[in-house]
Design a protein around this nucleic acid. Structure first.
Length: 826
DNA sequence: GCAAGGTC
């Protein structure tokens, strides 16, 4: 029996399909899929199935000096026990083993890990290696026809990286965490990739903080030929002879303004017309995909998560790739054919197929691991996937379309007109050949119309405007810009860059979007710059890459490289040791700065965001226990201190981070003053008789309102009230509940809410009525019931009477077939 | 309870 091992289950299944001609059987062993046919078995790993770590006696942070980790041994232990067990089981029965992991350095290392597991149970079984760049019939057959051996040097290069990353990361992370007394889940982390990335963000923030704005002026005027008016801007030549629009002296700006404002014509002195070819974009690698998705409003994490789902479902190719050149065996015409006749994508595909010759664009990077991201030709129906998934799928499809489309052509027209010695310019542009923009509508194609004019022509001049402006600080990096910059600097990989950003959020180093560094992040980068510059510099990765190349080519050994790295870290620790207290003080101070809201209204010390023993957040005074002033915070989410401050109390605003339910809470002191109890409207039906509780109209911290008992939290009786509008308490009373009728004033017409108890009871009755009917059907959930109700389908009668196609059109995520199946059941 | 790299 031959055992074939791949890097992931998906690849195992596709290889089984190709080699068996679709005749394989599949079974499960320890929860792992095994594909079997004609004397062969194929199993997929899940990336690395073993990991590196120190021996257990090093695991207590307090008992082990961080410096001791540098010379500690590094062991490999299984991290995916079930897969390792399955591999051992299958290896015992194998007469030959073929390693078919991904064709890149990490794939070689993963292959070596599988090799070691196999060798452990069988010293003699022959083990060979096959390499292919994409899982297509041709490539896979060729690879299996010409098998090779595992490249142990290349795998060793990967191992060196693992060891160096672990030692540097663990030793420095433990050192900083211990120095600041931050143990447990709030440890302070450092690493070869995360720290240089954090430094990028921190450096930009330093520029922003140090920025000194400068005033300048810009002048605009309208020019007109016949009835056509267009905007022109004043410019001059600076000392280097370049065109400049910004005027740095007010007196000069005024002088130009007065001259222009006095005159009513300008003379055309230069007309410049040129055409520009706008070449179509290159195929998607991971970074460019994230960038394009981010322009549509997706975070890096969300974009990758959707791409992974689309990949697993078979609609797009593997989303983690550096490659920007399509492989030879991708036939663009064949792939376009798959879209012909499709309701929304078909037209573009058909127009592209009309071309005489189809030549895809190519990027600069051609790698051996995976093809660029492109559609597989399998098209999901709209009901099968969510709107977001469809939007990302369409992006990938259209990007593929764009790479086989024609270039676009723009015509640029620049007109320069003169008034005395002053010059005005207007830049027009027109898209004469839309080219790829027809099939890829994600780039701007906005035009600016400037009419045809001739040199010497007089144009009417009007509406001269002088605008005072200020230079702006550089902008923070957005998530996709950061990922692009990481790629440019060579740090991280296509699979990890977006994870590294997530890590910075998780560690409390950055907040918001675009990511803004916390004081802690600034202090960590500063400490690293002072004592371990290497770990915040992209140089460390560059050197490591060079060392890994040396190992792979046999010029150096794993021990040469790791020993040298250990020595460097020893030197760093020699300097760190004596500054431990100083570093700890700085870190602790910055941790406190991140919690600081502003002055306490009672004692003037700082108010801090704190966490109670039960885990809830509140605002407390730094002067505690002398000052016991506190303010509440909402119970949902994790508080984030915003840059914005309250004019009245000088306190920073607070935002509550709770995923999709994130909201701005504002100034906690204002909120506390606004909140509280409104008018009392009657006795509490639950505890009024026994304890004298009364019902009051209350406004909560979050801004929502309710009728609640004055004995809260001892009595939790409450009734809901609408969010919007002012509530009027009338003189009329409900006979049954002895409570006043309420009127809500919002919008144009006030509406009668009536007695709050009756109102609530009616609401509940409506809920149960509408819910019971439709929700009784199998395969229909509460969310769908809501969506159907929005489309006017409130009960089973409505559903059976409805036209399935019309329903599918109106309701997101519901296909006509699904509606028919409900109708059959109803 | 440390890193970064695979994969889900």
């Amino acid at each position: 029996m031959e055992l074939i091992i791949t890097e992931k289950d998906n690849a195992a299944r596709r290889i089984a399909d190709i080699l068996s001609g679709g005749t394989y059987d599949s079974s499960r062993e320890n929860g792992v899929n095994v594909y079997e046919w004609g004397g062969k078995r194929c199993v997929g790993l899940s990336g690395h199935v073993v990991g590196v770590d120190f021996p257990p006696e090093y695991s207590d942070w307090r008992d082990v000096e961080p410096v001791e980790l540098i010379d500690a041994s590094v062991e490999k232990t299984p991290t995916k026990e079930n897969i390792v067990a399955t591999l051992r089981l299958l290896a015992r029965r194998a007469e030959r083993v073929t390693i078919a992991t991904d064709y890149d350095r990490e794939g070689e290392l993963i292959g070596k890990e599988a090799y070691d597991i196999v060798r452990d149970v069988d010293e003699d079984v022959p083990i060979r290696r096959v390499r292919f760049s994409s899982i297509t019939e041709n490539e896979v057959q060729n690879a299996f026809d010409e098998p090779d051996d595992l490249d142990f040097d290349l795998a060793a290069a990967g191992e060196a990286r693992q060891i160096i990353d672990l030692i540097w990361g663990a030793a420095l992370t433990r050192f900083l965490s211990l120095s600041a007394g931050q143990l447990g889940e709030d440890f302070i982390s450092v690493g070869r990739v995360q720290s240089p990335t954090l430094k990028l963000i921190v450096d930009r923030e330093r520029e922003i903080e140090a920025f000194d704005p400068e005033d300048y002026w810009e002048l605009f005027a309208d020019l007109a030929k016949d009835d056509t008016t267009f905007e022109a801007q004043y410019f001059y030549r600076d000392e280097d002879g370049n065109e400049a629009e910004r005027v740095w002296e007010e007196a000069i700006a005024d002088e130009v303004y007065e001259t222009l404002a006095e005159r009513d014509t300008a003379t055309v002195v230069d007309v410049n017309r040129r055409t520009r070819t706008d070449t179509p974009p290159t195929p998607f690698n991971t970074t460019q995909f994230i960038r394009a998705a981010s322009a549509l409003g997706y975070s890096a994490k969300r974009a990758m998560s959707i791409a992974e789902d689309l990949y697993t479902a078979g609609y797009i190719t593997y989303p983690r790739t550096d490659n920007t050149v399509y492989p030879d065996d991708l036939d663009p015409e064949e792939l376009l054919d798959d879209f012909v006749g499709h309701s929304t994508l078909g037209e573009s595909a058909e127009s592209l197929l009309e071309a005489d010759e189809i030549t895809p664009t190519e990027g600069d990077e051609e790698t051996t691991d995976h093809p660029p991201i492109h559609p597989t030709g399998e098209i999901p129906s709209r009901g099968d996937i969510s709107d977001d998934e469809w939007e990302i799928f369409e992006l990938v499809v259209r990007r593929f379309f764009a790479t086989v489309a024609d270039a676009a052509v723009w015509e640029h027209l620049k007109v320069v007109a003169e008034v005395d010695d002053y010059r005005l310019k207007a830049n027009g542009k027109r898209l004469v050949e839309p080219g790829y923009h027809d099939v890829y509508p994600y780039f701007s194609t906005s035009e600016n119309y400037v009419p045809d004019v001739d040199e010497g022509e007089q144009l009417a001049l009007s509406d001269v405007e002088l605008e005072e402006k200020q230079t702006q600080p550089p902008r923070r990096y957005g998530q996709s810009r950061l990922i692009e910059t990481m790629e440019d600097l060579g740090i991280g990989t296509k699979s990890t860059r977006h994870d590294i950003l997530e890590k910075l959020y998780d560690r409390g180093y950055v907040e918001g979007d675009p990511p803004r560094p916390t004081r802690l992040a600034m202090a960590v980068v500063e400490a690293a710059e002072d004592y371990a510059d290497r770990v915040v510099s992209e140089e460390m990765t560059a050197q490591l890459e060079a060392d890994m190349d040396a190992i792979a080519s046999g010029e150096a050994t794993l021990d040469d490289v790791t020993d040298e790295s250990r020595e460097m870290l020893e030197e760093i620790f020699a300097n760190l040791a004596e500054s431990r207290d100083e570093i700890g003080d700085q870190l602790r101070k910055s941790l406190k700065d991140d919690k600081r809201l502003g002055p306490c209204p009672e004692c003037g010390e700082d108010l801090l965001v704190r966490r109670s023993r039960h885990g809830s957040y509140f605002v407390g005074c730094d002067g505690y226990p002398d000052c016991e002033f506190t303010l509440p915070l909402p119970s949902t989410g994790k508080p984030l201190i915003m840059e914005e401050t309250c004019d009245e109390h000088d306190l920073h605003h607070v935002k509550m981070l709770a995923g999709r339910q994130t909201f701005v809470h504002g100034c906690p002191l204002c909120k506390a003053e606004d909140a509280g109890e409104g008018p009392i409207i009657g006795d509490c039906p639950e505890c009024g008789d026994e304890h004298g509780g009364e019902l009051a109209i209350k406004t909560l911290q979050s801004g929502s309102r309710l009728v609640g008992c004055t004995r809260y939290p001892d009595c939790e009786y409450s009734l809901p009230l609408p969010r919007r509008g002012e509530i009027e308490v009338t003189d009329e009373y409900c006979d049954e509940h002895d409570l006043p009728e309420l009127v809500v004033h919002s919008g144009d017409e006030p509406w009668e809410l009536g007695c709050p108890i009756c109102n609530y009871q009616e609401f509940q009755a409506r809920e149960s009525e509408s819910g019971s009917d439709l929700e009784s059907l199998d395969g229909i959930g509460a969310k769908t019931v809501e969506k159907l109700a929005d489309a006017g389908i409130e009960d089973l009668d409505d559903l059976t009477a409805a036209d399935p196609d019309a329903v599918a059109e109106d309701v997101d995520g519901v296909s006509a077939d699904r509606v028919r199946s409900w109708q059959a059941k109803a």
